[in-house]
Amino acid sequence: MSVADGTRAASFVAAADEVLVEEHVPAWRKFLDELRGSSKGLSGFVMIVLVLLVTAFSPYLMPHDPTEQIIAHRFAPPVFDGGTYEHFLGADNLGRDILSRVILGTQTSIAVGFLVVLIAVVVGSTLGAISGYFGGYVDTAIMRLADFQLSFPFILLAIIFMAIFGPGFWSLVVALAVAIWVNYARLVRGETLKLRELEFVQAAHSIGVRDATIIVRHILPNVMPSMVVMATLDIAWVIIFEAALSFLGLGIQPPTPSWGVMIADGRNYLFESHWMTLGPGLAILITSVAINLFGDFLRDTYDPKQARL
């Protein structure tokens, strides 16, 4: 072995004074910086915060008891259609205040949206990570299940669930979660297949780290950004579908206020009292637009691969 003189030793001190390539910016500060620079992200974010505030403080924001029926106020028009401020968005066929019901309905929509996506993320990413990391028969089994799921008409699936478990909040949540877990399974599987070959995962493997630990500590954190983007956009999808199923009578059952149920109620009076559908319709529109704006921003920022051109 040729032993060099002082030059070897020089290589040790050499690195110490190397320039710092880049300042590290904590994730939350990067998020705020990016958000400030994006009108799309900022407007979506502000609207979402407002919707969440309404959800949290709904008991204090409702001007009326949402279930109180005042016969005299049946079909009271909204302010902008000749009505009074007592019923800002008008009243329905039973004389209930629409604004109050829309506000209470926020709770249902947000709860369903978050719960469904949470369940789908947990189930989907676990199965996806297992599928991608271990491959082989496990992978084939999980992916065939996913294919089967995707080829199954969603409405039919929802009807089957309602038939088996009876309509209600939890059947709805489970039916919707079953419908979208595949997205996460596929996303996480694909990313895992890529990450598994990356050298830092191989390094962990060669150190002797357990597979489960590698998945939890190395793979999932690196899939997280794409997953958050997808989850955000899916919440909007779930809220719209919750309304659609409830409209069809397959979801939330009256008297629990739900935007979908309210629209269904309003359908019969569409020509005489359009405001019965207008209130909940606007609520759905605003919420889903807000989430989509914010989700698009997240995608542009954290997952440029998926960004639309």
């Binding site: 003189d5 020089a10 290589s11 320039v19 390539v21």
Partner: peptide, 15 residues
Amino acid sequence: DEDAAVRPIPGVVAD
């Protein structure tokens, strides 16, 4: 020759 040592340039390329 095999025994000729290489002498690294210290530091890194300029930012």
